[in-house]
Computed example of a mutant assay.
Amino acid sequence: MSDTEDDPVVASYDVFLTDSDVSRYVFQYLDRHVDLPYNDRNNQCPISLKMKQNTGLVEVEVPISTRSNYDVNKGMRYGEAVKKSRSARDGGSYGMSGGFTAGSGAVGTGGRMKTETNGDVEVLDNKRVVDSNALMRTQALAGRVKPAEEGDPIYMLGTFKDKNLHLSPISSVIQFHPQLHHLDALDEMPKAKGTRGKKDDDDRPAPETEARAIDMKVKAAEDGETQHNAGNLEILKQMQEEKWRTYGWIDAETEDAWYTYESFMLHPEDGEPQALESNLDSEEYLDKMSAPRIDPARPDLTGWAMKENRRRQREAQAGSGNQ
């Protein structure tokens, strides 16, 4: 019995490649269980997505459920801090995406999301009535597009339709981590220490300080470290100066999402598809996939030299056969 009879072919598919010029990203939420995706069914459909194309920064704003496992006191405290922060008014972010300054934005408390409110107040599970706008209701998740380098693996998304397999190349895999913008906003607020005991006449709001970029000076012992640190500072500067581009979010189960899926994940059926042609012959393919081959007759010849020696031998044999 042959090996093919032990392992028969059970299915055969034609493979199609979709448009490679379309940007496709795979989002990975490292602290989120696979059974709890951020979608409308779980009442946590992301509100928006922000991206800085040149530096590769990406932020997704997701709603926070205030109905379970939610500390109302801290929610009001952080929500008030975010609401009053300079970054929230400027519409950007703290941390690396803002160049470690507060001048380019944070998570907002507003946004379009489903809420169960009664007018301008909200009744929580503990029957406590609070101002809906005072609660921290969203959280930012951030990641970065890793620039492609030579030798990186090429990932593809596969879609089956009938007897066809459609492969779509992925631009990048982005891993998202929760951002603590609310803590940065709280730290930004003027300290209340020393304000007690003042007269009511002197009880004025503290003047807001201007947002300024941080001037970082780095001293390194070696020239290599100096160049590396200078490169990091230049990247931070580019992150801070680049403007966010905001995109809407379409839930995966909507009709628009399915339309986009069929448009960009399947090869168009109109016309005869162009057949792929390999640039490698069989021996070149083996050389790419395997370790360097060694000719037992000539151990000193490997790789290209071995192939050239075999080519000359074949030509010599063919010439002698024609005589």
Rank of each mutant, 00 (worst) to 15 (best):
M1C: 07
D3E: 14
D7G: 03
V10D: 07
D19N: 15
D21I: 04
D21Y: 05
V22G: 03
S23F: 10
S23A: 09
R24C: 11
R24W: 07
R24N: 05
F27D: 06
Y29H: 14
Y29A: 08
L30M: 10
R32K: 07
D35W: 07
L36P: 01
R41F: 14
N42H: 14
Q44N: 11
C45P: 01
I47L: 13
S48M: 09
S48K: 13
M51P: 01
M51W: 11
M51A: 09
K52P: 06
Q53E: 15
N54Y: 14
T55F: 06
G56F: 05
E59A: 06
V60P: 02
E61C: 12
V62F: 08
V62T: 07
I64F: 02
I64V: 12
T66R: 06
R67G: 14
S68I: 12
D71V: 02
D71S: 07
V72S: 00
Y78Q: 01
Y78M: 03
A81Q: 00
K83M: 00
A88Q: 01
G92W: 04
G92V: 04
S93E: 05
G95V: 02
M96K: 13
S104L: 05
A106I: 00
T109D: 02
E116H: 10
E116G: 12
E116Q: 11
G119C: 03
V121G: 00
L124R: 07
D125Q: 10
D125K: 14
D125L: 11
K127F: 10
V129M: 09
D131T: 00
S132A: 08
N133A: 12
A134D: 04
L135W: 01
L135P: 02
L135K: 01
M136D: 00
M136L: 11
L141P: 01
V145M: 09
K146W: 03
D152L: 04
L157G: 05
G158N: 06
T159P: 00
N164K: 14
L165H: 02
L165W: 04
P169M: 03
P169G: 05
V173W: 06
I174S: 03
I174N: 06
H181G: 02
D184L: 06
D184I: 01
M189P: 01
K193T: 09
K198L: 14
D201K: 15
D202L: 13
D203K: 11
P205A: 04
P207C: 04
T209D: 12
E210K: 15
E210S: 13
A211Q: 05
M216L: 11
V218Y: 04
A221Q: 11
G224T: 10
E225M: 14
H228T: 14
N229P: 02
N229S: 14
N232L: 15
K237F: 10
E241S: 13
E242I: 05
K243E: 15
K243G: 09
W244G: 06
W244N: 06
R245E: 15
Y247M: 08
E255F: 05
E255Y: 04
D256W: 03
A257P: 03
Y261P: 00
F264N: 07
L266G: 01
H267S: 12
E269Q: 09
D270Y: 03
P273W: 04
P273Y: 03
N279F: 10
L280R: 09
S282M: 14
E284T: 06
M289L: 15
S290E: 10
S290Y: 08
D295P: 04
R298V: 04
D300P: 02
L301K: 08
T302P: 05
G303I: 03
R310W: 15
R312W: 08
Q313R: 13
Q313W: 08
G319Y: 09
N322V: 11
